[in-house]
Design a protein around this nucleic acid. Structure first.
Lengths: 195, 195
DNA sequence: TCAATAAATGACCGATCGGTCGTAACAATA
DNA sequence: TATTGTTACGACCGATCGGTCATTTATTGA
C-alpha cells in the first residue's frame, strides 16, 4: 500500500461517518479536515472536489455494508439461518454496525432528488440485496427446506421494505421497539414457510 | 388574515417543497428568497432564523400530511376501506401528494442525528399514524368486520414500516414497482382478516 | 544514496453563507 | 385622512464555504 493509497483510505474512513450522519450537504470540508488532521490541499491530491469525494465515500460505505451482510450470511448454512442472520444484523438500529445507520436509507433519501449518481449507486445495492434474499428463498425451496408455494420475489421486496422501514422508525423513535416487533414478525413469517 | 399572516403562510408554502426535496442543510436562504420573491429582511420579520423557519416548515408539512391522511380515510366507512385508502395514498411515490415525498422519511432521516427538535416532531406523527392504524383495526374487530385473532398493534407497526420502506425503495429506483408489490401484499393480508 | 516524483501544506481567493439594521413603503385604525 | 405601528427592503457584515497553487516535505525506485 503506497502512501497515497493509505491517505486516500484514511480520508474515506474518517469522512464516511460524517457524511452518513450529517448528510453530504451538511458536511463541510473543514469537518473532514478536522477529523483527518490533514490540510485542505491534501484532500485535493486524492479527490477532484467535494462531489467526487462524496461519491467515493458512498462507494466505500456501500461496499462495507455489502461485506457486513455477506459475511454474516455466509457463516450460515440453511436458508432460514441466513435470513435470520440478515434480520439480526438490523436488530439494533441505534447501535448499528455502520455509524449513522443504514447508508442506503441515509444517502438514498438525501440523493433521490439531488444527486443522480448517488441515487444510482444506492439503487444498485438495493436491487442486489433483494436479489440476495430472493436467491436464498429460491434455493431453500429447491432443496426442500422451504415450502414451494412461497413467492420469493415478493417476499424479498416486503422483507427489505420492512427492515428499512423498521430502521427508520427506530432511529426516529430513539429506541428499538419497532425494529424488534418487525424482526419477530418477519421471523414468524419465515418459520411458517419451513417444511 | 392579516398581511403578516399571509406573508408568513406564503413563506411556509414556498419553502416547504424546497426543504422536503433538498433537505434543511441543502436549502439556503437565497433559495427561499428566490421562490418567495421576498427580500432577505422580510424573512426575519416572520421567523427568528433559519433553524426556526425549518422547524415551522416541518410543522407545516406534517400538518399537511396528517390532513391528507385524515381526509382520505374519513371518507370511508369500513375498516378495510380505511386501510385500503391509506395504502392507496402512497401508491405512487414518484408523484406524491406532497412534493418531495413523505416528510416523515425525508425530515426523519436527516434529523435523526442532527436536530432533536425535528426528530421529536416527526416521532410524534409516526406514533400517531401507527395509533391510527391500530385503532381502525381494533374497531374493526369490535364491530365483527375483522377477525379477532389479529394483533392490531403489531400490524400497525409492520404496515407502517412496509409503506415507508416501499416509498424509499420506489424513490430510489425511480419507479413504483416496489410500492405496488407492497401495496398488493398488504391488501392481501388485510383481506385475509376480513370476516 | 540521491535525484526524480509525489504528497502535504496553508495562505489565499471569490462566492456564498446566515444574519443585521436603518430607511422606505405600506396597512390598520382612530 | 392623518397618524402610528408594522412590514418590506437591500446594502452591508463577518464567517465560512469550496477550491487553487506556489512551496516545502516526504516517498520512491534506479
Amino acid at each position: 500500500m503506497t502512501k497515497a493509497e493509505r491517505t486516500r483510505q484514511l480520508i474515506l474512513e474518517k469522512a464516511a461517518p460524517l457524511f452518513n450522519t450529517k448528510g453530504v450537504a451538511g458536511t463541510s470540508l473543514s469537518d473532514i479536515l478536522e477529523v483527518t488532521k490533514l490540510a485542505k490541499g491534501s484532500l485535493y491530491v486524492h479527490f477532484e472536489n467535494k462531489e467526487d469525494l462524496a461519491h467515493e465515500v458512498v462507494d466505500y460505505q456501500l461496499d462495507r455494508l455489502a461485506n457486513v451482510v455477506e459475511t454474516a450470511m455466509s457463516r450460515k448454512k440453511t436458508a432460514k439461518e441466513k435470513l435470520f442472520a440478515y434480520i439480526d444484523l438490523y436488530l439494533d438500529p441505534l447501535n448499528p454496525p455502520i455509524i449513522g445507520g443504514c447508508p442506503l436509507l441515509n444517502f438514498g433519501m438525501e440523493a433521490d432528488d439531488t444527486d443522480e449518481v448517488i441515487r444510482k449507486k444506492v439503487h444498485q445495492l438495493v436491487e442486489k440485496a433483494q436479489q440476495n434474499i430472493r436467491s436464498i428463498v429460491e434455493r431453500g425451496i429447491e432443496t426442500g427446506e422451504l415450502k414451494s408455494d412461497w413467492d420469493a420475489k415478493e417476499f424479498a421486496t416486503t422483507m427489505f421494505a420492512m427492515v428499512e422501514g423498521g430502521i427508520m422508525m427506530s432511529r426516529i423513535a430513539g429506541n428499538n421497539k419497532a425494529m424488534q416487533v418487525i424482526a419477530r414478525s418477519l421471523k414468524n413469517e419465515i418459520e411458517e414457510k419451513v417444511n
